[in-house]
Design a protein around this nucleic acid. Structure first.
Lengths: 234, 234
DNA sequence: TGTACATCAGTGAACGCGCGTTCACTGATGTAC
DNA sequence: TGTACATCAGTGAACGCGCGTTCACTGATGTAC
């Protein structure tokens, strides 16, 4: 029992140290981007550079941890945003809350956003286990569409004819994520989703500099437009 | 006269050398991203690294040249795309041609696209003279909207109420780029524009990996959807 | 037209720096009897 | 409860490498008289 306690102390200290390394590394993303330096992190941590190898086997592994954390943080932000709307039948409200939560996270952590939604890091290949966390926001969104359709709030848009290769890709996706959802709704949803991340990237990557001054208002307007586009009530 | 000729020979050789340096540097974007190495470029060029300083005062200056070239190449692609439609009154066709030209360029030169539309390079500040070239594609697009409106092909969407901060930002932009164009049309245009670059970034930065297989078809579908969204005839 | 001088591209050595990773080590902390 | 041993975090030196930039230089090419 004393052993157990002692053992878990060691484990806790280790976890804290790991967190501290990641915290400092995250700070370095701002100045170095994805080519952050282990030695610089060690320096800030007040430790010799080789000490980091007790926690991460390589620079790439640390980078992967940061990427994973970023995906999960954004996933959690999306889920919390959606969950914050108490009237679960208010799907437009849930969409806006989710969209807003995503932007808020991105604005607060722009370099982590860039890490996962910006240009790929040259030479870096994401391991398989980023796939799940990366999908969390899209799961929230797809659930929204499914619920909206089930409740009859979203009607399948009329007159949307999907070209057959598009229909095939969308259908394959639906089979995995949302069987039963009409492809035309999903396709519109994907357009809205693309616009959402386009909007955030435009803002954070400086494409709107000197053009838009009230970013929040412009984003909100876009998200309302997208709500209407996917067939949510306004 | 012989002097003139000789002088222009020297100038021509110099220009060719400059182009060659940029060509090789562009190749290095693929492997090193924005933190390309002067020494590596010099090595590939078969020249000692300090020789490059006869052509570019610093690494940043070379990077700026690449960025400028990328902006201009994309600008030219947009303009050529638009100009390729002989029936100038076919605004939907011109929109689709322009959109396609932009994507084609991006797909052909993904690293240059990433350089100008991806995450900002940490520590790098774009000089003022990138502003003009950077705007070339948006000029093509805005002209499209203006012409469409003037010809009565695009009707101001009804029921679009812009929140006042959005209206203010859009109005200020219109004053510079397209006086007389209704703000509601411009706002929808900006949404479409955002979606366009969102779509390309999604594709090139790997967000659609394992989801979309026929990228061209999906993009084309999105651009048709956006044409409809801004009020172009389908 | 021929010669003296100026311009310019490219060289090679050097400066001072930073990097990721390995490895044998020390000393503290935890575990088993 | 006390002791012998195992685990583990962190050290410090080293490896072999790459980087941007400066500077005095050589030699070829162009210019002016």
């Amino acid at each position: 029992m004393a052993g157990q306690t002692a053992g878990s102390i060691r484990a806790r200290v280790r976890a804290e140290m790991t967190d501290e390394i990641k915290r400092i590394a995250r700070r370095h993303l701002a100045t170095d981007g994805a080519n952050l330096s282990l030695r610089a992190v060690a320096r800030d941590l007040g430790v010799v550079s080789s000490a980091l190898y007790r926690y991460f086997a390589s620079r790439d592994e640390l980078l992967t941890a940061l990427i994973l954390d970023a995906y999960n943080a954004l996933g959690e932000a999306s889920e919390t945003g959606d969950a914050s709307v108490t009237d679960r039948s208010d799907l437009t409200g849930r969409w806006l809350a989710t969209a807003n939560a995503i932007r808020s996270w991105a604005v607060e952590f722009p370099h982590e956003y860039a890490l996962i939604y910006g240009s790929p890091v040259p030479g870096y290949v994401a391991p398989q286990d980023t796939v799940g966390p990366a999908a969390r926001p899209t799961v929230v969104f797809t659930t929204l569409l499914v619920e909206g359709h089930a409740r009859g709030v979203i009607k399948a848009p009329r007159g949307d004819r999907l070209p057959s290769p598009v229909r095939a890709d969308v259908a394959a996706l639906l089979q995995v994520m949302a069987p039963g959802l009409p492809a035309s709704i999903m396709a519109r949803g994907m357009v809205a989703w693309t616009e959402l991340f386009g909007a955030i990237s435009f803002e954070l990557f400086g494409r709107l500099h000197g053009v838009i001054y009230d970013y929040q208002a412009w984003y909100d307007h876009q998200m309302r437009a997208m709500a209407e586009y996917v067939g949510l009530p306004t």
